[in-house]
Design a protein around this nucleic acid. Structure first.
Length: 429
RNA sequence: GGAGGAUUAGCCUAAUUGGUAAGGCAGCAGUCUUGAAAACUGCCGGGUUCACGCCCAUGGGGGUUCGAGUCCCUCAUCCUCCGCCA
């Protein structure tokens, strides 16, 4: 959420930002917001004046009653009508504030100056050089579906029977490999990168979704448990960031870094037909997420850290990847700056998104009211929040299986995972 | 699911039969000091104002009242107990 004072003072910047994000349709809403803001300010002033009067006269009533001298009847009658007037104005005020909030919640974040201008994903910039590793795939490669089926480690059909399409079951050594990946990533982040491990709740309330910005924008992409009004998390970002919702963080404790495993649930409504085979798009997948809370001046260095921490996983696994700096037309509404990390799929012959690393600046912190007291100041400020996948296992698994397949159709386990799998190879049963 | 108790600012704690939130700690700035501590002064929830000030804020939301931390309803969370269940 943007600060209404910021919007009022920087209307041109906000309008430019909307155009850069290809969201020109929101511009009329911006004007609507400013009109509401103006009406609200005037009404607050009038309501406050009447409240001041009521407070003053109520004190006089108290004095009269205490001293027992004279009658307060007339004052009480007058204040009764003043109170009714105040109630009318305050009703209109809460109406105005509700309308303003619904616009504010839908407005996207500012863009960082380093975000390239662009209309769509086609204009994202490749950041640095693609990183490659030698895998001798000098034979016809199988895709992850064929490998998963022939080795008996992935069962999409039975997963579909149990739940529906997009709910894969991992079997035998496939299940162990998945668990190994998760453990390896968590250990790396906690032992080498300084993150504190969190095992978060998988269902959250609406306040939490609103705090991180999934509500109201992506409400239709989240599974909802109606009976208890809970939502299945689309990413650990939601519960982990909201751990500190409404809190005043200790300045000395910043920056705070959390790494969390969670299952992630996404309805993926409306996205059928595109990249839907196998693991390319699923309703449930596993992910290790990194979340940071920082002082504002430290957040962009923290973003680079998160990106490097995610890359470190791929380097250790020797999986080829590239980093994209998302352009203004493709970056998500909540983020001020975002890197995507994509792994190479030899079977698909294309890159697949496996991580997204974002700086939200104070956009989420303002929604979720997460503050701290800076050194040398007594007034609280909003922290900056960041997160990055480190990483999502589904597409990582696609690339891993495909890169580590042998001519015989077996899978060699990457060196760094053998400690976790306690087997070196997956062979057909 | 049922019964009782609790929730006041970053933390801790007050507030007559309803009369308009008082303190303490921590933190920050300053005075003093060679430096620090101590002591002293100011700041120390949000909004608005050049400022004085004014308004809001006692877990959330309603209600009664001229006036609600206080009375009523409701929801949430925590604690204790009962019931049910893994």
């Amino acid at each position: 959420m943007l600060d209404i004072n910021y919007i009022r003072l920087n209307q041109v910047e906000v309008m430019n930002m909307l155009h850069q994000r290809q969201l020109a349709v929101e511009v009329p809403r911006l004007q609507e917001l400013l009109d509401l803001d103006k009406e609200r300010k005037e009404l607050v002033q009038r309501s406050d004046d009447q409240k001041a009067l009521r407070n003053k006269v109520s004190k006089e009533v108290a004095d009269i009653k205490k001293s027992g001298q004279g009658s307060a009847e007339e004052l009480i009658v007058r204040m009764k009508s003043v109170s009714e007037e105040i109630a009318l104005m305050d009703n209109r005020l809460s109406q105005l504030e509700e309308e303003m909030e619904s616009i504010l919640l839908a407005l996207p974040n500012k863009l960082h100056s380093s975000v390239p201008a662009g209309k769509s994903a086609a204009e994202n910039e490749v950041f640095g050089e693609p990183v490659t590793f030698v895998h001798n795939l000098d034979f016809p490669v199988k895709n992850h579906l064929e490998l998963g089926k022939s080795l008996g480690i992935l069962d999409f059909e039975r997963g579909a029977k149990v739940s529906g399409a997009g709910f894969p079951a991992y079997m035998g050594k496939g299940a162990r490999l998945e668990r190994a990946l998760i453990n390896f990533m968590l250990d790396m982040h906690t032992e080498n990168h300084g993150y504190t491990e969190v095992f978060p709740p998988f269902f959250v309330n609406r306040e939490s979704l609103r705090g991180t910005g999934q509500w109201p924008k992506f409400a239709d992409q989240v599974y909802h448990m109606q009976e208890d009004d809970l939502y299945a998390i689309p990413t650990a970002e939601v519960p982990v960031t909201n751990l500190h919702r409404g809190e005043m963080l200790d300045n000395g404790a910043l920056p705070i870094s959390y790494a969390a495993y969670s299952a992630c649930f996404r309805r993926e409504a409306g996205s059928y037909g595109k990249d839907t085979r196998g693991f390319l798009r699923v309703h449930q997948f596993n992910k290790v997420e990194m979340v940071k809370f920082t002082r504002p001046e430290e957040s962009y260095e923290a973003l680079e850290q998160i990106r490097r921490n995610a890359e470190a996983i791929l380097i250790a696994l020797k999986i080829p990847y590239r980093v994209l700096l998302l352009c203004s037309g493709d970056i998500s509404a909540n983020a001020a700056k975002c890197y995507d990390i994509e792994v190479w799929s030899p079977a698909e012959q294309k890159y697949l998104e496996a991580s997204s690393c974002s700086n939200f600046e104070d956009y989420q912190a303002r929604r979720a009211n997460i503050r701290f007291k800076p050194n040398g100041k007594s007034k609280p400020e909003f922290v900056h929040t960041l997160n990055g996948s480190g990483l999502a296992t589904s597409r990582l698994m696609v690339s891993l299986l495909e890169h580590y397949q042998t001519a015989e159709g077996n899978i060699r386990v990457p060196e760094v995972l053998r400690h976790y799998t306690r087997f070196d190879e997956i062979t057909a049963p």
